[in-house]
Amino acid sequence: MAKTKNVKKEMSRLANFTKGFFKENPVFVFLLGLCPALAVTGTVEASLGMGILVIFVLTSSNVVVSLIRKWIPHQIRVPSYIVIISTFVTIVGLLTEAYAYALHGELGIFIPLIVVNCLILGRAESYASKNKVHDAAIDGFGMGLGFLGALVVIGFFREFLSTGAIAYGVYLPLAETPGSIINIDSYVFSMDAFGQAPGGFLVIGLLLGIFNFVAILKRNKKERERQRMIEEKKRQALERKRQKAKEKAGANA
């Protein structure tokens, strides 16, 4: 009996970790933290950097909020969360400036703005303040990863469409000298607008639309499947009815 209970808990922990990837993706599903998702996703590396910072802040603030959740009086919980979050943001900002200076310059104002990323305050309020420390940590890390994933996907399309290449080593200390993973030298991939402001909106809009489209296709397929099953059943019922009628007729005859 105890064994099954344990397994169930393990499962839910895994689900807790992975829920932010697709089902509850903060950017694509809940549209949280759109400001950084639009602003710093001009390149994959900047997206990656922002994602890492958010994972750090989100996990740490979730842990701390969960740790002290029982001591914080209800009426001052939001200011307390804000203080906690901005403490971590400041620390992260200082660390970035010390160890990834180029990234600090690229993300610029969006590092202090992590404070007002609704994702972080949202998780503190809705999850960390009600759950145990390890659950809160897993939730923060998973959600952060989901956020990072979304940013990197957006960054990939934007950087690829605007430069035809995916560069590395420019902002993050990933390599001794900067290089690029993909590099297609073609005029087709020099649509500057995608690297700049308008591209952010367009790429997220297009991606959301495509995701919706796929979801709708899937739903339609399921719908058709169901419809077919119903038809099939109807047909079978009709068949049986006919059979019965035939038998009846045969018997009568």
């Binding site: 002290i68 001591w71 914080i72 009086p73 009426q75 200011p79 203080v83």
Partner: peptide
């Protein structure tokens, strides 16, 4: 208590 908590957090 509220004041103390705020003070400690700060």
């Amino acid at each position: 208590k509220t004041a103390a908590v705020l003070l400690i957090i700060g």
